[in-house]
Design a protein around this nucleic acid. Sequence first.
RNA 1: GCGGCCAUGGUGUAAUGGUCAGCACGGCAGAUUGUGGCUCUGUCGGCGAGGGUUCGAAUCCCUCUGGUCGCCCCA
Length: 421
Amino acid sequence: MYQAPRGTDDVLPEEFPYWQYIQETAASFARRYGHQPIRTPMFEQAGVFIRAVGEGTDIVEKEMFYLRTEEDLVLRPEGTAAVCRAYLEHGMFNLPQPVRLFYFAEAFRYERPQAGRLRQHTQFGVEAIGEEDPALDAELIDMLWRLYASLGLQNLTLLLNSIGDRACRPRYLEVLKAYYADKLEDVCRDCRTRYERNPLRLLDCKQESCQPVIAAAPVITDYLCEPCRRHFDRLQEYLTAIEIPYTPAPRLVRGLDYYTRTVFEVVPEGAGSQGTIGAGGRYDGLMEELGGRPTPGIGFATGIERIILNLKQQGLQPPEVPGVQAYVAHLGDAARLPAVRLTRELRAAGIRTVMGLGGRSLRAQLRHANAVAARYVLIIGDEEAASDTVQFRDMAEGAQQRLPRGEAILTLSHALGTEVR
RNA sequence: GCGGCCAUGGUGUAAUGGUCAGCACGGCAGAUUGUGGCUCUGUCGGCGAGGGUUCGAAUCCCUCUGGUCGCCCCA
């Protein structure tokens, strides 16, 4: 038997209420903040991500799905870089800035699957490009935070940090490396590698043995240049003003190289390693990396599957999605065509309808109607077919009456509270 | 990419080397002429795949596949 590929999930009908609920809520939030939808291809030239996400990152180095082509195409491993490519390609810098966008996009990463970590997952992403005002940072953080609240998620923590920019980060990294220089024997092997390749990630090490070293390490926020300092201070001012309870996280860094200044992450209480449900940050250097003019930007992404995981853990149910409203049961050869026509008419009237199939007994059809939770059943037999009437049955009440066909449709529409079109 | 645990019908499970792999839920059908939910009866359907050990394997061993937990990384 075939199985879905490793690390992928089928989303079955019973799961769809979650998806619909989250997507509708998220889209409505994005629009409320002035954002418009965008959709980019599932695959891109590999360079888009190599340039944007960074050559030394895990995503680029070992997690991209390369397609079998000569063009070096890869399945999109994240959303931001692709949207920035589209921004440049379509000259969106000619639009009123900032350009505010949102999207739902599948992302693909070749990783070892775990609960909350899939090879294909879906992100709700939001980007605001072309403005560096920290008030914009605050807006996006606000959107993400309120979205979770609106979905009913509890006990979340918003971690916030600034990782500086090209002006001040190199200086900090030197300080950090100087600090680590005489401690390399005390830290784990990975950290020794990080020391050479990506010192910022030293702070992110989870090894027990490295914690004391990290705890005493110099903190980047003490080394921010004046503009970054100011940006970060303002952002915190704004967040406080709009009552977003953030937690300063001076050691928070992110695994994508394009981030500058603001970075943030939302984690549930008691989060494991797959805990982060949403994260983002500013990427003021990214457009240049992709060959465009210097253009600031900020965005976030949140994983739909992880949101669902947390909704379930917290016992939160999505609103029910409507099911079948009417069922057309029929028996006898004379009722065959009238039943098909009636079904057609009901659907034309906007009523969600299914018809009994397979020439089954009336008993079987009613049982079926009950199983698919149809509230009303319209029954046509020989007599009804001959007189152009139907038996109109309310399954919940158990009441039934014979009505002329047209009247039955009106009665049904009325009962369902819908208008016949 | 590293380490641990796990794998029986669609779902949840029982059977720890030896009767046709049992049960529940579920699907379908039936319980007199054209009426659902409850009940009863019948029926459908399984040892993840491939090797090996053994007289004999769901059960022991190996490989693969998949899941899961921790690490790494990330949404």
